[in-house]
Computed example of a mutant assay.
Amino acid sequence: MADEPEITGTESSGTEAPEPTSSGAKNAGTNARTNSGANSGTEPETKPTAAGDAAPAGKIATKPTPARPRDTAWRRLAGAFRPHSSRAQVAAAVLLAALGFAATVQVRALRNTDEFTNADRTQLIQIMDGLQQRSRRLETDIGDLQRSKADLVSGADRRRSALEQAQTRAQTLGILAGTLPATGPGIRLTITDHQAAVNASLVLNTIEELRDAGAEAIEINDQVRVVASSYVLDGQGGIIVDGKLLPAPYTIDAIGDARTLATAMRIPGGVVDEVSQKGGLASVLERQTIQVNSLHSVVSPRYAHPAPDKSPGSSSR
């Protein structure tokens, strides 16, 4: 008989020994590295694997979480409302503010000059004529004063010139103070009041309007001379001027440029219109000669005294 080949192995184990392969060798190396990491007490370093590679043994493959997208629309909207200022914008703002201020001032100035808007052509011509006459009168006064100054400075007879100037000055002050009678061109204003609607306030406004128009002497009802210290009050049955009761109608004589004074009384919204609104009647007559004969009784002041002359180099506080 031919010899049968011997069968080597262990039958008692009941298992066959696996054949050694190259993959098995690789697994063995991997297991060895894994065991050495476990023995060292640290987890093995996990490296990212390429697509298609199998996950390491004992690990669950997870995908990387994508970053949360930013809401760029809201950020852009917030940036649009965020204030951004530059030097050019600041300069433009300052220029616009200055332009607005100048425009406001100009509008207010134009409003202030609209007081004669309702006046017709005839009334405007009268107002212009009155202003021109006042200007000529002031120019004449300036010329007289300059001639007087020249006579006092370079005149041959300075003493006589000084005496004449003093007399003229005393007469002027006497007329203005109401201690001397006066005569000259002017107007007579008559206010008729049947309803007792004309009060002291209206008469006082009339006096102020006459003074503003250049009246140099004023007399009421041929009885009271109006001066700087005069006062007007409401009384029973009339008005009280400087302590004297004057009944209606009221006659006011004023010496000055007749045309200018008449224009001031007839101006729209002036004395004539105001008296008419109160139910009275005001008439203005221009005359070449007005007589003002009432005199004002001068009373010595109780509180006011002449100020002492200032010495050279002294300063007042």
Results as ranks from 00 to 15, higher is better:
residue 1 M to Q: 08
residue 6 E to S: 08
residue 6 E to I: 07
residue 8 T to K: 11
residue 14 G to N: 07
residue 14 G to R: 08
residue 18 P to R: 05
residue 18 P to Y: 05
residue 20 P to E: 15
residue 24 G to I: 02
residue 28 A to P: 06
residue 29 G to F: 12
residue 30 T to Q: 13
residue 34 T to G: 14
residue 45 E to M: 10
residue 45 E to L: 12
residue 47 K to I: 12
residue 49 T to R: 12
residue 50 A to T: 05
residue 52 G to A: 07
residue 63 K to N: 00
residue 63 K to D: 04
residue 69 P to D: 06
residue 82 R to N: 10
residue 84 H to G: 10
residue 87 R to F: 10
residue 89 Q to C: 06
residue 97 A to N: 02
residue 98 A to Q: 09
residue 106 Q to H: 06
residue 107 V to A: 14
residue 107 V to R: 13
residue 108 R to D: 06
residue 110 L to V: 09
residue 110 L to Y: 09
residue 118 N to K: 10
residue 140 T to F: 09
residue 140 T to M: 11
residue 145 L to A: 14
residue 145 L to V: 14
residue 147 R to E: 08
residue 152 L to F: 07
residue 157 D to V: 00
residue 157 D to N: 14
residue 158 R to Q: 09
residue 161 S to M: 02
residue 170 A to D: 15
residue 172 T to N: 06
residue 175 I to M: 06
residue 178 G to H: 12
residue 185 P to R: 02
residue 195 Q to R: 05
residue 198 V to R: 01
residue 201 S to P: 00
residue 205 N to D: 09
residue 206 T to C: 04
residue 210 L to E: 00
residue 212 D to Y: 12
residue 212 D to I: 08
residue 222 D to Y: 13
residue 223 Q to C: 11
residue 224 V to I: 12
residue 229 S to G: 05
residue 230 S to G: 08
residue 236 Q to F: 03
residue 242 D to P: 04
residue 252 I to F: 02
residue 253 D to R: 15
residue 257 D to T: 07
residue 258 A to I: 14
residue 264 A to Y: 00
residue 270 G to S: 05
residue 274 E to Q: 10
residue 275 V to R: 03
residue 276 S to I: 01
residue 283 S to Q: 07
residue 290 I to R: 03
residue 291 Q to M: 00
residue 294 S to M: 08
residue 296 H to R: 11
residue 298 V to M: 05
residue 309 D to S: 11
residue 312 P to H: 02
residue 313 G to Q: 01
residue 315 S to E: 11
residue 317 R to F: 12
